[in-house]
Computed example of a mutant assay.
Amino acid sequence: MIITPAFAQAAGSAAGAGSAAGSFLSIAPLVLIFVAFYFLMIRPQQKRMKTLQASIGAMKKNDTVVTAGGLVGKVVSVDDVYANVEIAPTVKVKVVKATIVEVQPLGGKPAND
């Protein structure tokens, strides 16, 4: 029982058509994982960063801020790049606005109580 070359070539082309669908099915789980990561991790982080940047841009005197270093204080004045923050009754520090991780509006709990 010998298979003719023509029959063998036809079988190879049928396997090639099936391999295109097989390669798509092998890539599909990776695409689904990326979509899940986007909606569960990337998109919420982008929304959080947008709200943080908006709150830093709207920061004004007497707002309570938390820096990346853990300092909690009340804003005394705001510049384009820096914010002067009072961390104790007579202690004021100049903080780079990019290091602020949280802004609480007026009426927040004071840092030294």
Rank of each mutant, 00 (worst) to 15 (best):
M49L: 07
M41C: 06
L71S: 12
P44V: 00
V72G: 08
V72Q: 12
Y38W: 15
A54D: 10
R43D: 03
T51D: 15
K60H: 05
G73M: 00
M41E: 08
K47M: 05
L52C: 05
D63P: 05
N62K: 03
A58P: 02
Q46V: 03
F37K: 14
F39L: 12
G69S: 11
P44N: 12
G57K: 13
V72S: 08
M49Y: 04
L52A: 01
V66T: 12
N62I: 01
Q46P: 02
F37D: 15
N62S: 04
P44D: 01
V66R: 13
K47I: 04
R48I: 01
M49T: 03
I42D: 11
I42C: 10
R48G: 04
M41F: 09
G69E: 12
K47G: 04
N62P: 00
Q53C: 14
L52E: 09
M49V: 03
L40D: 05
A68N: 15
I56R: 10
M49G: 03
A58I: 02
R48V: 02
Q53R: 14
K47H: 07
M59E: 01
M59F: 01
K50I: 01
F37L: 15
G57N: 15
L71T: 14
Q53Y: 12
K74D: 14
V66W: 10
K50H: 02
V66H: 09
S55K: 04
V65E: 00
R43T: 04
G69K: 11
M59K: 00
V75F: 01
M41Q: 09
M49S: 07
L71D: 11
V66C: 06
A68W: 13
Q53K: 15
T67G: 06
K60G: 10
I56P: 00
G57L: 13
L52N: 07
K61N: 12
S55F: 00
F37G: 14
F39G: 14
F37R: 13
A68R: 13
G57W: 05
V72Y: 04
T67D: 06
M41G: 07
